[in-house]
Design a protein around this nucleic acid. Structure first.
Lengths: 296, 296
DNA sequence: TCTGCTACTGTGGTCGGACCACGTGGTCTG
DNA sequence: CAGACCACGTGGTCCGACCACAGTAGCAGA
């Protein structure tokens, strides 16, 4: 019932055992592994060992965003596993959006830790949709739930700021919607002529993401982005489906302005209704649900 | 950026090179698959090619839950890449919860597609938390958002069913809370003596998951489970922190019953308030936020 | 004939080596 | 001193080999 077999069942094992340093750990592998308090947990596959070790480094604070991971060869030697196993673990971390790899030498080369959740989230949701693990309507519904929460948070923050108007003029200006409104301006008055459909969708995505970021919850923001991207990747292949893209984009712009207005007015309920209608009509138009129609 | 391997022919993506093995899978042609992905078809990395191919199979319906993937060696030969690259792609799919691998031979061996999102979600969130990409309070807040949505859906469904009482007695019984209540019974009257802390937490997790599943949204359910598991894995290592686990578990049981009562009463607002309090107090007690205190 | 054991086959898991393309940085040459 | 140059280390990839495992076919014995 729980999980297949992966690292889902158990957690990060024990983070407190983490070694003091990355280097100088060239001891024999057996020693390090068997001495860790958790013995019952069969380390099983070698790549899981690598994954746990790196997670241990992260939890212990030995590694953080911006830091370089040890080289694949060094990691392999340190853990007593083959480079292939190390690479499998790094591949996972890369897809999950934790690291970025680059060839060559110098400060930008190697595997660098970059906590960037949105990419991994999008990949996860997209593949789950492809494998029929997620139904598209459920994905859309979840996106509505999350964006509604964002709207609520923003509108309430705005209302609270308006209420405290006479209090402190410093941080009482409500949520920071500057980034979002700038994107709106860019959508309405594009610098380089009329926007293509893809360009518009990119800005649209950025707008929604900006609102989520403004609400202050990174988790919701990246989940939102992941949900949207996963669907979007299927929408865009169906490309020229809409009869009149100009009309649609104009309507979307109008709805975006209305969203911001509802937020600034501090009307959480209105903002929720508008974001729900915004998302629902969009997905109704592009009717993505026809993805899995053939042969299944 | 072009050839990962200089010597071998023109490239791995040469359509002509695909040997006619994998009978059922050759239905999908090259062009059909390569166009489906979001990124450019080239993409350089061999393992991405494998990933896209498998995703193409999934989207096209050639592969579905329960099906076997081609063997690693066959996949490598089909795509003209090395087995290492295939393995990296499969590793990603495994962590993302799309496939389950097993050694040996027979119907259960090999890589089998199982769309089980919760595992991948948990791994993603957990690692992002470890890498400081996610803040624990945000994770908790997001969980509250999602579970609140579940409560709302369940309560409203229950209320609607009560309203239609005189109508059809067949499916008008509201959401199916049988699984959830059974878990509650198991928690209060454990078969094998008093529950350990881990056993209780497992049942608790299953209860919350059962509610989410009952609400009918798999996406929310797996995200919820992932968020909870990711935090839980850190909570459990801090193990014996609570002064009186008996009191806590008794309180949690009471709150669980109250949740179900609110749902069955059709009181969405009350259910939301209760789930929020339930989650907040739990996390306040276990104070997981002390994870990243040292050395950062 | 039926039963039980034993090889065989194919799977994923892992390892080590080899090579490539790429950049950096120190070194050699003009 | 300046510019070209090459060694070095990185990730990316492929290959061949071996292992453990689990079915299965086939053989040997009762």
């Amino acid at each position: 019932m729980v999980g297949p077999r992966g690292l889902t069942t158990v957690g990060p094992t024990d983070p407190r055992h983490c070694p003091p340093q990355l280097t100088a750990l060239n001891i024999v592998e057996e020693d390090t592994l068997s001495e860790t308090s958790v013995t019952a947990l069969d380390s099983g596959r070698a790549w899981e060992t690598v994954l746990r070790r790196i997670e241990g480094y992260l939890v212990a604070g030995v590694l953080g965003p911006g830091d370089h991971l040890p080289s694949e060869r060094a990691l392999a030697a340190e853990l007593g596993v083959g480079r292939s196993s190390v690479r499998e673990a790094l591949r996972v971390l890369e897809v999950l959006g934790l690291i970025r790899t680059q060839t060559g030498s110098g400060p930008q080369s190697g595997a660098i830790i970059i906590a960037r959740p949105s990419g991994g989230m999008a990949a996860l949701v997209r593949l789950q949709v492809a494998a029929h693990g997620f139904a598209v309507p459920d994905v859309v519904a979840t996106r509505i739930v999350l964006e509604s929460a964002v709207m609520t948070a923003l509108a309430e923050a705005s209302a609270a700021a308006a209420g405290d108007a006479g209090d402190a003029a410093s941080a009482a200006s409500g949520p920071d919607l500057a980034a979002a409104t700038e994107l709106l301006d860019a959508m309405e008055n594009p610098a380089g002529g009329p926007l293509t459909r893809d360009e518009f969708l990119t800005l649209d995505q950025a707008f929604h993401l900006a609102l989520a970021v403004a609400s202050g919850n990174e988790v919701i923001a990246s989940m939102m982005a992941g949900l949207r991207d996963s669907i979007e990747s299927y929408v865009r292949v169906g490309a020229s489906s809409l009869p009149s893209w100009n009309d649609t984009s104009a309507r979307l712009e109008r709805e975006h302005r209305a969203l911001v207005a509802a937020i600034e007015a501090g009307d959480a309920s209105l903002a929720r209704d508008r974001i729900r209608a915004h998302i629902e009509t969009y997905h109704a138009e592009t009717k993505v649900s026809s993805i899995h129609s053939p042969s299944h």
